[in-house]
């Protein structure tokens, strides 16, 4: 109990929070993009798992974390390609396909891992951190926020890049229109199917990257079902953020702190079931919804496949 509020403990807690938040952030940003374009992407959990597995395999055999991130993103994108073909191009039910992809990838990654590594769980060496000079010297905050792998800073930068994309670029507007009034976008001469496909593929890449980070940096190994609902958390974050990337970041950090707190409590030997702490972020968000819940501003055409000329 004595060490609970020491400087070291606190900065370790926050460091863990950031590490836990990054996969959620990437998944949330990805899901947000799909939802903006009108595709409810329930398969994101499967995309994360594909990313985690292929990301781990890539990093494990090449010895390069960056190559791992690349293969992870490619893995997520490959799953997203199936989703784009089935749900965007030929308009199958997004919930059926999404859940089917999640189930399938849960099974497939566990199966491949079994045949490849049997019951052993090889570890990757710890990821080397990029230390930001000066800022990392601040007590508590420095070691917590400024001694991470380079990809963490890139992920945070991506939040602002996404904000710019949605507000200032043609593609951002197209995405928004594809979700709100796809027919109008079509009339304006822009291919709705193509716009939505871009969104779904980007989602896959981001989710895959998130999964790869989770396995390679967060855990340092791959175990079956490693994402453990992170993709569904991403869906929750994206819906709560109402189209704003910055809110995804805040939400991811909130959940990250709670996830980190569960491990910290165990380390500190405090005798509360971890389930209690795992409930905290959801309780907080539910209370916020009850107090401030207003009509959610979801895209009008969310979940509805676009068919040209259909009424």
């Amino acid at each position: 109990m004595t060490g609970l509020f020491s400087e070291v403990f606190l900065s370790a807690l926050l460091f863990g929070a950031v590490t836990a938040a990054i996969p959620l952030l990437l998944a949330g940003l990805g899901e947000q993009m799909s939802e903006k374009a009108g595709v409810l992407n329930i398969g994101i959990e499967g995309m994360m798992l594909a990313g985690a597995y292929l990301g781990f395999v890539g990093a494990f055999y090449s010895g390069s974390l960056w190559l791992g991130f690349l293969t992870g993103a490619a893995g997520g994108m490959a799953v997203a390609l199936i989703m784009a073909l089935l749900c965007v191009r030929i308009g199958l039910n997004q919930i059926v396909i999404g859940i089917a992809l999640t189930l399938g990838l849960e099974g497939l990654t566990a199966l491949l891992h079994h045949f490849q590594f049997s019951r052993s769980y090889p570890r990757l060496p710890a990821a080397d951190a990029t230390v930001i000079p000066l800022l990392s010297d601040i007590p508590v905050i420095g070691p917590a926020f400024f001694k991470h792998h380079l990809i963490v800073y890139l992920a945070v930068a991506l939040v602002f890049a996404m904000g710019y994309l949605y507000r200032r670029t043609q593609l951002g507007l197209n995405l928004q229109a594809a979700g709100d009034k796809p027919a109008a976008l079509d009339v304006a001469g822009i291919d709705v199917i193509r716009t939505r496909t871009i969104a779904v593929l980007s989602t896959g890449a981001l989710a895959g990257l998130g999964g790869a980070y989770l396995a390679n940096v967060g855990a340092g190994l791959f175990i079956p079902f490693i994402t453990n609902g992170a993709g569904f958390l991403g869906i929750v974050l994206a819906m709560l953020a109402r189209g704003r990337p910055v809110w995804v970041l805040f939400g991811a950090l909130l959940f990250g702190v709670c996830l980190s707190l569960t491990t910290a409590m165990q380390v500190a030997g405090i005798n509360i079931p971890t389930d209690v702490i795992q409930m905290l972020p959801f309780l907080a968000v539910m209370i916020m919804l009850v107090l401030f819940g207003r009509r959610a501003s979801l895209p009008a055409a969310l979940g509805i496949p676009y068919e040209r000329g259909a009424r």
């Binding site: 992809l101 189930l103 099974g107 079994h114």
Partner: peptide, 8 residues
């Protein structure tokens, strides 16, 4: 886990 793949 193969059952999951099959169901999917």
């Amino acid at each position: 886990h193969f059952t999951l793949v099959l169901v999917s």
